[in-house]
Simulated scan of single mutants.
Amino acid sequence: MEPESPEYCALAGAAGGYYGRVARIGTPVDAFAALKAYSPESYSWMDPGDNGKRMHLDYCFVSCGLEGRLKSARIDTQSEGSDHFRVWVEIGG
């Protein structure tokens, strides 16, 4: 799913204009968004036939109780074997 698509908002909750997206019990938290790890250049999928065609389609959602334990998030764009890249999230104790 694409960022902020209807499917994404159905899962993560809609983002309000004033408060943004508020974590709620029972609503998953996008780890990358919580860590502000997205950039305009972020992508997790690349078209094998056209390496210039890239999109962010993959996520790691955690329960809202784990949000405060998130340490880091990254996408391994050097990984091989699929047109989707590995998404890594570190959760601390």
Rank of each mutant, 00 (worst) to 15 (best):
K36Y: 02
V29D: 05
W88D: 10
K71G: 03
A33D: 07
P48N: 06
D50C: 04
A73N: 04
V22R: 10
Y19Q: 14
Y43E: 05
D83G: 00
S39T: 15
W88A: 03
Y43L: 01
A31G: 10
S72H: 08
E90M: 03
F61Y: 15
A10M: 12
A15K: 14
Y43A: 02
A15I: 10
A73E: 05
R69L: 06
C64G: 00
L57N: 05
S44H: 02
S39F: 01
G81H: 08
Y38F: 15
S82Y: 00
F85M: 06
K71R: 14
R86V: 02
I25L: 11
G16F: 06
S82H: 01
A10P: 00
A73Q: 04
N51S: 06
F61S: 07
G81I: 03
T27D: 03
V89S: 06
K36H: 11
G65Q: 15
A31R: 06
M46A: 12
G52W: 08
W45F: 04
K71Y: 03
G17L: 12
M46I: 04
K53P: 00
L57G: 01
H56V: 08
V62W: 05
Y43D: 04
Y38S: 07
E67C: 02
P48A: 04
S39R: 13
D58Q: 09
T27S: 09
N51D: 07
C60L: 12
V29S: 09
S72K: 14
M1N: 06
I91D: 05
P6I: 03
R86N: 04
Q78K: 11
L66V: 10
S79N: 09
A23Y: 11
N51I: 01
E2T: 13
C60W: 02
H84D: 03
N51G: 08
M46D: 01
S44K: 04
Y19D: 15
D83S: 00
V87I: 15
E2D: 14
G65L: 08
